[in-house]
């Protein structure tokens, strides 16, 4: 389904919009990468929300009661998320690399690694917001939907930072997608003058993944511990 959506979006909307955008050589390529980044965000946030739902609905206590060490359990859950992410992104990324004409193992690996890192950061962000879910699942769903919309809208997913009006550009620097999208584009050979400093972008992505996953895990553990039961 995700692959079909990607194909349709690229073929219809991407083709149309690329005829309107000037200033970026072959905007369709830029758009294709942006859409893959948006997919990564969707999958990462879905994984994070899904995990919180498990905790909220009771599957997590079952998993926690199984005769396996906690570290192994969390590693298995993380790996499952990673494999899902890789599978869902494989075809869109392959198509994008073909479209750009940069289908090499190195570019594919570098782009995928960046997308993974971004995915973990986004999943961690959703985990870090999990404390809301234990008070109200509806409020959690509403807040994560709003945060998702803001993070996508105010980012460089669809346009480079230097093309954005100043008020949008400032907000875009707060979005993790800006750093993910720019870093992936750099690895895929886009004009570096349109992109953020790659070291800075990599540092921000790393900080995001480590801090949100760490915070999310701690918060989730404390909240699971604190859930009222009979």
């Amino acid at each position: 389904m995700e692959w079909l959506l990607f194909g349709l979006q690229l073929a219809v909307y991407g083709s149309l919009i690329s005829t309107l955008v000037t200033g970026i050589t072959d905007y369709l390529q830029f758009y294709a990468v942006g859409f893959v980044v948006m997919m990564t965000f969707d999958i990462g946030s879905h994984t994070g929300r899904h995990f919180v739902e498990h905790a909220h609905e009771g599957r997590l206590p079952y998993l926690l009661s199984l005769p396996i060490p906690r570290r192994t359990l969390f590693l298995a859950i993380t790996l499952q998320g990673g494999v899902e992410l890789a599978l869902l992104l494989s075809v869109p990324l392959f198509v994008t690399l073909l479209l750009i004409g940069n289908l090499t193992a190195i570019s594919a690996a570098a782009a995928l690694a960046t997308l993974f890192w971004l995915g973990f950061g986004v999943a961690g962000l959703m985990l870090a917001l999990s404390f809301i879910a234990f008070r109200s699942a509806d409020v959690y769903a509403a807040i994560t939907a709003a945060v998702s919309a803001l993070i996508i809208r105010f980012s460089t997913v669809l346009y480079p930072l230097i093309f954005l009006p100043p008020q949008y550009a400032g907000a875009a620097l707060l979005s993790p997608l800006t750093y993910g999208a720019d870093l992936v584009r750099l690895f895929l050979g886009f004009d570096p003058s349109l992109l953020l400093d790659p070291l800075f972008a990599a540092a921000i992505l790393t900080a995001l993944a480590v801090s949100t996953l760490g915070l999310g895990t701690v918060l989730l553990q404390r909240l699971v511990e604190g859930v009222k039961s009979g």
Binding site: E57, G58, R59, P61, Y62, S65, P67, I68, P69, G230
Partner: peptide
């Protein structure tokens, strides 16, 4: 010794939450 404890017990939960 939580891992060792989990190796000798099984729990059937109040709410059947499955896959």
């Amino acid at each position: 010794q939580p891992t060792k404890v989990r190796q000798i017990l099984g729990i059937s939960f109040q709410e059947a939450r499955g896959f």
